[in-house]
Amino acid sequence: MARSSSDSPPLFDLTVKPDFSFERKAMKRGLWPLAGLDEAGRGPLAGPVVAAAVILNPKRIPDGLDDSKRLTAEARETLFSAILGTAIGVSVASVSATGIDRINILRASLEAMRRAFCGLHVKPLHALVDGRDVPPGLACGAEALVKGDQRSQSIAAASIVAKVMRDRMMENCGRLHARYGFESHMGYATQRHRDAIGMHGALPRLHRVTFAPFRIETETAVEMLIEA
Rank of each mutant, 00 (worst) to 15 (best):
L34F: 04
S4W: 03
L120V: 11
A51N: 04
M186H: 07
E171V: 06
L56Q: 04
H207T: 03
R132H: 06
V164Y: 04
A35R: 01
T78R: 15
E74M: 07
A162Q: 04
V16R: 08
K69H: 12
D7Q: 15
R151T: 07
G148R: 07
D167K: 10
R179K: 11
M186D: 00
L84W: 15
R179H: 05
A87S: 14
A158G: 03
T220F: 08
M224H: 08
S5K: 15
V161W: 00
A162Y: 01
F20C: 00
R76F: 05
T98K: 07
I103M: 08
I100N: 02
K69A: 03
L110R: 07
F22T: 01
M224S: 14
F20R: 00
M113V: 09
I61P: 02
K28Y: 03
A35I: 01
S94A: 13
S4N: 06
A112F: 05
V122F: 08
M27A: 10
M169A: 09
M1C: 06
A40K: 02
S8G: 09
A73D: 09
L79Q: 04
H185E: 02
A228M: 09
V50L: 02
R166M: 07
G187Y: 00
E227T: 14
P44Q: 05
K69Y: 10
D130Y: 13
D130E: 12
A228I: 06
M113L: 11
C140V: 03
H126D: 05
H126M: 13
L225Q: 15
A221T: 07
R205T: 12
R29E: 11
I226C: 04
R107L: 07
S94G: 02
V129H: 00
R70K: 15
R151V: 05
A156E: 13
